[in-house]
């Protein structure tokens, strides 16, 4: 059944990879582009290939990466979520306020993630049973959730510290989530990203739910005929996205540790979608892999880091990043058409 409903969708294959499979995988183009970019920056700048800078890049891409993993599910399911930047702000700030109100860490972070799941659930319900295109439903939610964050905080910055009411032990644990280092070297944000990506890879490649997402995104009609509950699959993809956006928002507040509802995560949804698309996911659904998304996030992160290291003007940086997105997706689509 699975093979039938996956017609049109390009899911990763189970089983072992051979070298030639790896070289011809759809991620190969993105990987080669990343490799070329890294080589160029290594020779063009003095500071790129240092452990400090690479770990910085790792940390800087982690939050974008966690959200892009969620977006991969949504895009593969043939939908899009524009509310992720607002969810990131609302849930992070809400958790921060709970910590300042004296809540224990687990409860504050847990409730923040649950809030993200609820936002995802609403997005999912509106896009399926509500029959709204997800572009419109989540555009509305982008505004509503941002408004809710402003109402919640009254537009004031939320700073998590002892002076504002957080208990010292909770604050230490919270800050470790965002600012800490595993073994004193690897940023915790990067650790969380790797864990999230690994779990997502497992779900997408090794479980029935993963295959159903590809089936739904590849052809919703075929999936429905095959007995798959299309709406349920899409709703779960949105819930997963909401949870990951919330978790990224919480980690962001743990890192800084201050945020403001009017600025936090503003426009982030476009970065997330861009990184996911550069990694090979398709806006028309049925295509995308976690490995591709990781590479897409890395390209955007390395690019931003490298342009600053090279001393490129900020206005040129914006141009270059847009240019890379267009070229990367263009090459991918061109090569896909040729191989089809």
């Amino acid at each position: 059944m699975v093979d039938v409903v996956r017609s049109g969708a390009r899911a990763p294959t189970r089983g072992s990879f051979s070298l030639s499979q790896l070289l011809w995988a759809r991620e190969a183009g993105v990987f080669l582009a990343l490799l070329a970019l890294c080589l160029f920056l290594t020779f063009a700048t003095g500071g790129f290939l240092t452990s400090l800078n690479l770990l910085n890049v790792g940390r800087q891409i982690s939050l974008l990466g966690i959200m892009a993993v969620g977006m991969t599910f949504v895009l593969i399911a043939g939908e899009v979520d524009l509310s992720v930047g607002s969810t990131y702000a609302f849930c992070g700030l809400a958790s921060g306020m709970l910590i300042c109100a004296g809540w224990p860490l687990f409860a504050a972070v847990g409730l923040g993630v649950v809030a993200g799941c609820v936002i995802g659930l609403i997005n999912g319900l509106l896009s399926t049973y509500g029959r709204l295109p997800s572009l419109i439903a989540t555009l509305g939610m982008l505004s509503m959730v941002r408004g809710a964050a402003l109402i919640l905080t009254n537009g004031q910055p939320v700073t998590v510290n002892v002076r504002n009411g957080a208990s010292e032990s909770v604050l230490n644990a919270f800050e470790f989530m965002g600012q800490g280092y595993l073994f004193g070297v690897i940023p915790m944000q990067l650790v969380f990203f790797v864990i999230v990506a690994a779990i997502a890879w497992f779900i997408l490649s090794m479980t029935n739910f993963g295959f159903r997402i590809f089936a739904v995104g590849g052809s919703a009609k075929a999936a429905r005929v095959s007995g798959i509950h299309v709406s349920a699959v899409k709703i779960w993809a949105f819930i997963l996205m909401g949870a990951l956006a919330a978790f990224a928002g919480i980690l962001s507040l743990a890192f800084l540790p201050s945020g403001q509802a009017g600025r936090t995560g503003l426009g982030l949804e476009l970065d997330v979608i861009a990184a996911t698309i550069v990694g090979g996911a398709s806006l028309s659904g049925g295509e995308g892999t976690i490995l591709g998304t990781i590479l897409g996030v890395l390209i955007i992160g390395v690019m931003r880091n490298g342009l600053v290291l090279m001393g490129v003007s900020p206005f040129v940086q914006e141009f270059m990043i847009g240019f890379v997105i267009v070229v990367a997706v263009g090459i991918d689509k061109w090569s896909t058409r040729r191989s089809a």
């Binding site: 700048t45 500071g47 240092t50 400090l52 800078n53 910085n56 800087q60 939050l63 962001s252 890192f255 800084l256 201050s258 945020g259 403001q260 600025r263 936090t264 995560g265 503003l266 426009g267 982030l268 931003r304 880091n305 600053v308 290291l309 090279m310 001393g311 900020p314 206005f315």
Partner: peptide, 24 residues
């Protein structure tokens, strides 16, 4: 030495400063 345009998102502001200080 330069004017750094950080954008307004708090994470981006910090990352831009971090990168720029490493660059120079």
């Amino acid at each position: 030495v330069k004017t750094l345009n950080t954008g307004s998102d708090p994470q981006k502001i910090y990352s831009e400063i971090e990168n720029a200080m490493l660059a120079d």
